[in-house]
Design a protein around this nucleic acid. Structure first.
Lengths: 95, 95
DNA sequence: ATAATTTAGTTAATATTATTAACCTAATTA
DNA sequence: TAATTAGGTTAATAATATTAACTAAATTAT
């Protein structure tokens, strides 16, 4: 009846990260931090989990002399996010 | 930007319970157990939390000689569920 | 020059939440 | 009367999320 909600995406912060990334080509860590309102520590951990799952790709580089972390969503991430959306909508169908 | 998701509702099982209850006047514990696929223990705990929040009302009675637990959603529960639905949809808007 | 502050994170420890496993009471069936 | 079923509850455990402390290098102030 009720399909399982992908537990990796059923987390406010990870879902917010995916939500930002699905609408944009590539973003910096600090941009995500601002958009989601998360602390750097929590964001770092949750992004690590999304990368481990293959949902996002994290690329470390430099902006001038400072290190910057950029990231983007993967095809597999897009698919998972769409599936999650479909499933959670089924929980809301009686509205 | 991203509003918080009510943590009481952002739980697969509690959301499923609310989803069932919003579409029906009153149900028995065992019906909910079957619909959600939850174990009795977990369901009992999560329903307790929903009741504590005032989102559902639990009524204990008897069906013949056996105890039965029935429950229904409250107005406050309907409101919270609708708000949750609105907020989570905002996370999915870029699809 | 060097001390304090800022940028950009990571990681260990802690707090919170969810789930299971064991348990309880009473009724029913073998 | 012994085992099983109905209908749960609760203590213990497992899983998750969040914070707080820390690292390293660059920049600004004294």
């Amino acid at each position: 009846m009720y399909k399982d909600l992908n537990p990796l995406l059923h987390s406010q912060l990870r879902l917010a990260v995916m939500s930002v990334l699905i609408g944009i080509e590539e973003v910096e860590f600090t941009f995500l931090k601002e958009k989601t309102g998360a602390t750097a520590g929590n964001l770092s951990l949750q992004m690590g989990k999304l990368e481990e799952a293959g949902y996002i790709k994290i690329i470390k580089g430099f902006k001038g002399k400072y290190p910057v972390t950029k990231c983007h969503i993967t095809e597999s991430g897009k698919k998972a996010f769409c599936e999650y959306a479909t499933v959670i909508k089924s929980y809301l169908q009686h509205l």
